[in-house]
Amino acid sequence: MTDNTNIRSQQQTSARRLTVFALLFVVLTIAGLYAVYDQFAGRSISFDRRLIAPQTLAAVFALLLVYFISDGLRLHYTLRALGHRLPFLVMSRLVFINLFVSNVTPMATGGGFAQIWYLHRYGVPVGRATAATTIRTVLAVLFIFTLTPIFLLTLNAFDGQSVASDLGFALAIFILLYLGFFIILLFRTRWLIGPLSGLLSLLNRVHLISDTHHQRWQFKARREMLRFSHSFSDYLRGRRLFVLLSVVFTAVFLLSLFSFPALLIYSLGYDVDYLVSLGLLVVTTFIMYFAPTPGASGVSEGVFGSFFSDILSGNHLILVIVSWRLITIYLGMIIGLIVLQRELMKSRRKSG
């Protein structure tokens, strides 16, 4: 009875925390859009019906399918390389749960934890689930962090931009720190067992966890960290086809994600240079990785507005930003919220 009460209490606390972050996401998004409206759009905005023309909607829908399907397949084949296979419906729900949770938690930290929880519910050990979601993230990071310096150095659009000049050294440091963390996480996982064990001991000393839970969690933490360590080696030794497909679908996912602005801008009648649009969004996404706000809200709108203000007229800038975020983020978040609520209800029924 006590365990069930604790589970319900934890779920209620998590729900309240997600609600606060969701409200923060909305407030910061509005603030970011207003900043763009005031600073880059000349306080001008107007709706253009070309964005809802049948051919535009058909192209957006087709690209959106590629975006969602490749997002699911990149994790699917990572799991297959680790020896796990989940049904299509499970993987599709996972895509939207990740979209919702990662965009209402700071620096997208919650998306990975939500996916680990969900995968564990369907029989994947925590260590293996952690490895799968981490490898999936690392593959995307490697693409983005490799392309960002190339675009910063080669695109004329960044001439005179502070991102390429004043922040160049800082960006290099961020890249090294971020990649360094993942290298330790993947190749020297055992180094993290000591700090994790120390953290659990501290929580026990300040009476945040009981002695019984402390002993149990110490054992589980060490076991799952060792499983995680072995999992990356298992991934590299997995079937070459599955490893290759996990990389290929990561590339397809990112390419589809980065193509939406070009599609929207083209639909408005602009003669857009696809490579320039692609490069601008790669750098925008790179900056979003370090934004401390939920889902990079506010930051993403501001950076996008700054980068694309020379391409779009003021009355179209806000329109494209809202359309871009609606297609790639807001739509998936709404679906993810519905899916997550259903999964939590199932979990409560089982625990009850």
Rank of each mutant, 00 (worst) to 15 (best):
G352V: 10
V101E: 03
L167K: 02
Q161C: 04
V243S: 02
A296I: 06
L344R: 14
R17G: 09
P125W: 05
L208V: 00
R93F: 07
I193F: 04
L268S: 10
G314I: 09
T130P: 13
V248H: 04
R74D: 04
L23C: 15
F307T: 07
G168N: 15
F260Y: 09
T250H: 06
E224C: 08
V66C: 14
M225E: 05
P149L: 03
H120E: 12
F40P: 00
P125Y: 09
F145H: 08
G168F: 11
L244Q: 07
S165G: 07
N98P: 01
V303K: 04
F96M: 03
G112Y: 10
Q218A: 14
S309C: 10
L280K: 09
L155V: 11
Q11D: 11
V282E: 09
L155G: 12
S347A: 13
V247N: 07
N315M: 04
T284F: 11
V20N: 02
V126Q: 06
F169Y: 08
S197Y: 04
T146R: 08
W217S: 00
L153N: 13
H76R: 15
V320L: 09
K220Q: 15
L337K: 07
S197L: 07
E343Q: 15
P195D: 01
A221Y: 10
R17P: 05
A58N: 05
N204V: 00
S246R: 05
L177W: 03
I334M: 12
T19R: 04
T29L: 07
Y289R: 06
L255Q: 02
A262D: 10
S351L: 12
R190D: 09
R240A: 14
T5M: 02
V248K: 05
L196K: 02
L208C: 00
L241H: 12
L33I: 10
L337S: 11
L331S: 12
S277I: 06
V243H: 07
S162M: 13
A170D: 14
T284P: 01
A140S: 11
F47K: 04
A53M: 03
I193H: 11
L23M: 15
F232Q: 06
F96L: 04
G238I: 10
L192C: 09
L139S: 08
F100T: 02
I321G: 02
Y34D: 03
G295N: 05
F145P: 03
I338T: 10
L155T: 08
Y330C: 01
L255S: 11
V339K: 06
T328M: 13
D3Q: 11
Y235A: 13
D71A: 15
F100N: 02
Q39W: 12
L179M: 14
K350M: 04
D71L: 15
N6V: 04
V322W: 03
T2F: 08
S44W: 04
R85T: 12
S229N: 14
L254Q: 14
T109A: 12
I335N: 06
V272L: 11
Y122A: 01
W117Q: 08
S70P: 02
F249P: 10
P294A: 03
G298M: 02
V60K: 05
N98M: 08
R240M: 14
F258E: 01
